[in-house]
Design a binder for these strands. Structure first.
Lengths: 246, 246
DNA sequence: GAGTGGTCTAGACCACCCT
DNA sequence: GGGTGGTCTAGACCACTCA
């Protein structure tokens, strides 16, 4: 897929992803309005110099993100609800990304950040072997434009960070920290729950408030469990959506 | 894909789906244990008489359902957490299916079931045109083994049910009702929220309790909005999971 | 190096929708 | 009938993992 400005550095994703990115830009630029029909799969293939399969891959991605709607015999159309979906749950994003997607500037306030022995539950969740006994555990509040909108409880096996790791240097996104150690998470399994503030027990100032809990285990592309986290999002502050298909 | 007993009646799904069903059966039968490697894509293709692309489609489905884990250069392995995922949110299921997946017998207790004019909000959500003014609206409790575990508020445009529709005949799954009218939902967009019982205001006996709200609009494969629903699942009774991928 | 999955292509044919 | 997307195949080549 040739381009006018090919400045790809490292992370070259596959063609469908690249093409979906291009098309998403054009959608966001307003080149097509809600309800408009996109060019046919064949036309897009010719325009970008890729096969029809590749185009279909890209359109599949856009449809999964709720941005388009493809219909047999008719074509692919711009979805009406695309812009309203702030966070599509099946897309793995860091908390910082989620905050930014909602139009705020993220900031972390660490409550605790320590290396300590793992509990039995943590050992099981992170599938720790006999040799690994310690985890790097944090409790933090996530601020959006200065206001606490989420709380998170995280554990990382010390093994993945290396021996020379110093807890006090951490002050931002754990995703960044993991990426820096070359163990960026690419998959997570998230259980979803609704909880009231009283059951959290730390960092919360309004005891009656309700939170959406994402209880997750994150894995690298090699299947290594690198991060267990319970994140409590203040209800009403975030919009989480899932496109469900039968 | 030839079989010893091909008794396919109506809904012939595509090959990857069929193959995934076969493989899921073998997984559930315990033919492979957690951590075991499945046959290679080539072997499976030969065994079932399909191309490697088809096999990859099937394995993709199983991975999305959290049942397997495919790794480059190594093979496809049985996931450890597959059995624990009761309800994968991206899979569109009826409430009855969800209850059954958790091992209970579902039952509906209708509170109201009436045809009435649509509110403005409902008109917008269901994208009703000028000619359609009425919706079939229900409020019901979902019982699992006789106990109320979820509450739901649903609206269906009368247009999709036809003029000869009689509300009093409805006593079960709305999915069934829609299927009977040949407008079975195949897609939905679900917003997820956490709410406390006080904000529901009907059918709830324990005011302090917490619910997970799935606020959905369901579409047919032709893109027709056929059902708007707000379903409140009692927290702690259900396990909802999402596999998130970057 | 051998074996595995990851990506992409070209082409065929089918199913759906409109007029 | 003509145009659209839906499905499936065969084959090529690349990237990763392990011995």
């Amino acid at each position: 897929m040739p381009t006018s400005s090919d400045r790809v550095l490292k992370p070259v994703r596959n063609l469908p992803v690249q093409l979906a990115d291009r098309l998403r830009e054009r959608l966001l630029a307003g080149e097509w309005q809600a309800g408009d029909r996109l060019p046919t799969e064949g036309q897009l293939g010719q325009e970008y110099g890729v096969s029809r399969s590749t185009v279909r891959g890209a359109l599949q991605l856009l449809e999964n993100q709720g941005r388009t709607r493809t219909r047999h015999g008719l074509g692919t159309f711009v979805a009406a609800f695309g812009g309203e979906i702030k966070t599509s749950l099946p897309e793995l994003q860091s908390m910082s990304d989620i905050i930014r997607a909602h139009g705020f500037e993220p900031q972390m306030r660490f409550d605790t950040a320590e290396v300590r022995p793992a509990t039995d539950v943590e050992r099981a969740r992170l599938q720790l072997d006999r040799d690994t006994t310690d985890v790097f555990a944090t409790q933090r509040a996530v601020l959006a434009d200065g206001e606490a909108v989420a709380f998170s409880d995280d554990q990382i096996p010390v093994g993945v960070l290396g021996r020379d790791f110093d807890p006090v240097t951490v002050d931002g996104s754990l995703f960044e920290l993991l990426r820096a150690h070359d163990v960026a998470p690419t998959t997570s399994v998230a259980d979803i729950h609704a909880v009231s503030a009283t059951s959290i027990g730390w960092g919360v100032h309004h005891p009656g408030s309700i939170f959406l809990l994402l209880d997750q285990i994150h894995y690298t592309d090699k299947g290594l469990a690198v991060l267990a986290s319970k994140t409590y999002f203040a209800e009403g502050r975030f919009q989480f959506s899932v496109l469900r298909v039968r």
